[in-house]
Amino acid sequence: MASALDVTLPGSAVPRGRLHPITQTMEAILSLFVPMGFEIIEGPELEYEWYNFDALNIPASHPSRESFDTFFVDSRSPEPRRGRLLLRSHTSPVQVRVMQRRKPPLRILVPGAVFRPDPLDASHSFMFHQVEGLVVDERANFSDLKGTLTAFVERFFGPATKVRFRPHFFPFTEPSAEVDIACTACRGQGCSTCGRKGWLEILGCGMVHPNVFKAAGYDAVKVQGFAFGMGVERIAMLKYGITDIRLFFENDLRFLEQF
């Protein structure tokens, strides 16, 4: 009776894995746009200067072109006419890449990692994630943009969410706006979470600037469209009440297990 099996022993638990909260948030965001006819496309994290800046109407004199605001890469650029190699600072370059390869109409979503040399603190990380959207056809207009993003906000944050479109500026869109929701912590009264403004900024958006169409090879006269972008970490932090962005990247199971 040497090799007996003790059936009264408890079974060995198989640890259950789960998706990272950033992955979960990203998928939740994407799933709200896909039924609206959006297609998901990914692009390179190591990018050319031309796609990251010039094609997006960001001039050579813009402050973000300097080395202290972008991760330029030391290697020789395989295509010097496309500029230096860098780690992309936003997912917007993929808009241009897609437009170069496809004719309109387009409805695309671009999720991905982006990189900025910000010092690491509770609300900044040198690597984070964005979801970008682009719609181009003959008549997609600013009102459509408002409708699309309002629908997203109401479905993601809840139907009673107060939302506003505040005029802003991006070099690659005109008009440009930032989308704010009433602060989830104080419901619009003003608190430390929202910097006493009562509103939390969650999205940037606008009508694609004609110079971007031109750079991508579209006839700027015949098309129009809108684009939007959001920071996934920021949205996850608002949704889950997380106050320190670094928690996402420290790989502490006690944090990750909660999602």
Binding site: P35, M36, G37, S143, G147, T148, R166, P175, H209
Partner: peptide
């Protein structure tokens, strides 16, 4: 550009807010 003027029109014709114009949601 002309689009720069469009942004001004949006701000000023809607009296300082981007509210008040028709919203149309995209469907599939």
């Amino acid at each position: 550009h002309d689009v720069d003027c469009f942004e001004e029109l949006l701000c000023h014709i809607t009296l300082g807010s981007f509210e008040g114009e028709r919203k149309r949601e995209l469907d599939s």
